[in-house]
């Protein structure tokens, strides 16, 4: 697995696929290319996963390179590519997340 417990922080996740939950409740999946102290992230090959309780998960290709400001990030998670491939997104039903309450 990519995460090496010896190494703290996001360093071990660079160049791997990660899943980010933003403060406005979006789930963005992309390859982490860089980060800084403020948790600003560089994400490559971004997709947004739009959840719905009525239909399957809609994978929206955002494309290109994104710089996500740390202020707007709630969660950064490692994504297991193999496990992710096995998911059938069209069958997953889930209510969309609400925005973070400050």
């Amino acid at each position: 697995m990519a995460a090496d417990l010896q190494e703290a922080g996001l360093a071990s996740l660079v160049d791997t696929t990660i899943s980010v939950i933003t403060n406005d409740g979006r789930n963005i999946v992309g390859i982490l290319r860089g980060y800084d102290q403020a948790t600003n992230l560089i994400l490559d090959e971004c997709h947004e996963r739009v959840y719905s309780s009525k239909s399957g998960v809609d994978q929206v290709v955002l494309g290109g390179l994104h710089v996500v400001r740390g202020d707007n990030i709630a969660v950064v998670g490692e994504l297991d590519d193999d496990l992710d491939q096995q998911l059938n997104l069209s069958q997953i039903r889930a209510a969309p997340l609400k925005a973070v309450q400050h």
């Binding site: 290319r33 490559d44 290109g64 390179l65 994104h66 710089v67 400001r69 202020d71 707007n72």
Partner: peptide, 15 residues
Amino acid sequence: RGNTIKYLRVPDEVI
């Protein structure tokens, strides 16, 4: 102002 930004999109070739 930087702190009002949520995210930016930049062209692929920049990296």
